[in-house]
Design a protein around this nucleic acid. Structure first.
Lengths: 227, 227
DNA sequence: ATAAGTTGATAACAAATTGATAACAAATAT
DNA sequence: ATATTTGTTATCAATTTGTTATCAACTTAT
């Protein structure tokens, strides 16, 4: 089973530094997503829900701390570390006031950056990414939402549980007994076989109305597999 | 505005510095408790439950970071900021590895210390002297008031707790079990499911009488989410 | 290859579950 | 004691889930 690494966004307009930061964070086991400006970041946050952001302040178009302040205003609570050359007392104050959780001045020690990232993640109660992806499906567990190509797809509780089970076991055939135990519980005294078919079908229709993507592959006489 | 202040423990063997730190934190509205060594601190933690600790490392008898590591081993999760002259890379690493949340080296700027204290408290969910905003809701924690577009909205105690819980977890589906534990307490032997519905509904009506803003989104069979 | 039997897909319907809301009762605070 | 807050219950509405019937697809035996 593939584990979902923690994803960190870095906004930094100097490419050398961006690469340096990404290198060290990746070495520490994190997944990174770099941006050279604040452009497109907002959209990315909505889609991916990363766990932490490292933000430079001297950015083209939009100043980094103002960007963060704006996010905070809209209820975005992602942990933020400023990584910037702005090292005057007033700058640092501004960074914290505008919603930063930590403030590192350049030049910086990569190791300390990683340590501070770890400490902040720990304190924020983030242990692993809360999103599970499979092909173009993004399942957000705490949100209980499914996103397909930027579209929110409403799922019922049963459908969510079912899809979750399949995405946790991709490419593995789940037989009907397993599904019954896992989704419906062990009390299957009188359990209609066709219930599974119907539920899978309803789910199929919701996530792939045209049926062209063939997420669920029936395995005759056994069950289904997510392919 | 009477609110029980946040209490901060400072462990620092140089009396001058201890006084300086206490002075600035008190000026920022915190209650402080200073110690010249780690002695008696453990007992104090159990009795008083302070919100944060500022710890020097070069202390008589017991080294500061070892003391924190020991606390962590026993499950103590209090936010810790190290404030120390030990500024080598290995020292800083040790500080974080042993459970510190932040690391400030001497000489330090008092203002930055206060900012870092505030940031860490905020991230730790200790909000007592903060305002939390979400969309057009402004929740004033110490005053226990809610303002919507400059209008004061009266909330009962229960409603305030409920809204506070949701605003702390925006966009996250809070299930009924969680809400019951969080708001009503663990003694849910006989707890009427519908109590949550009714309370949410009363809150909805107060903060959005016309229902057009759709703050609370029901998640079928699970709970609610603030959206 | 074809027929019979089995299994899956699908639609329509029925049942069960869950949420909203109002009215009332109990508890708590002032 | 009175007002306010909070919990309970009943009713209704919405949604979800299960059942059944019918048809299509697949497997296997002849």
């Amino acid at each position: 089973m593939k584990t979902n690494p923690i994803e960190i966004v870095i906004i930094e307009d100097e490419e050398d530094i961006l690469e340096l930061v990404e290198y060290h964070l990746q070495k520490a086991g994190y997944e990174t997503m770099g941006f050279l400006s604040t452009q497109n970041v907002e959209q990315f946050l909505e889609e991916e829900n990363p766990s932490l952001m490292i933000v430079d302040r001297n950015l083209p178009e939009c100043e980094g701390s103002e960007f963060v302040a704006e996010l905070r205003r809209y209820g975005c609570n992602i942990p933020v570390i400023f990584l910037t050359a702005k090292d005057r007392d007033e700058d640092i104050e501004e960074g914290f006031v505008r919603g930063g959780d930590d403030y590192i001045t350049k030049p910086f020690k990569p190791k300390e950056l990683v340590l501070r990232v770890q400490a902040l993640l720990r304190r924020s109660g983030i242990t692993s990414n809360e999103k599970i992806k499979y092909r173009d499906l993004i399942l957000d567990i705490p949100n209980r939402t499914l996103t397909i190509e930027n579209n929110l797809v409403e799922l019922t509780n049963l459908e969510f549980k079912l899809l979750h089970t399949f995405i946790k076991n991709p490419n593995i055939t789940l037989d009907r007994d397993f599904l019954r135990d896992e989704i419906w519980g062990e009390d299957g005294a009188n359990f209609n076989d066709k219930t599974i078919n119907v539920t899978i079908n309803r789910l199929k229709k919701k996530i792939d109305p045209t049926g062209e993507k063939e997420y669920f592959i029936p395995v005759w006489g056994v069950g289904y597999k997510l392919g």
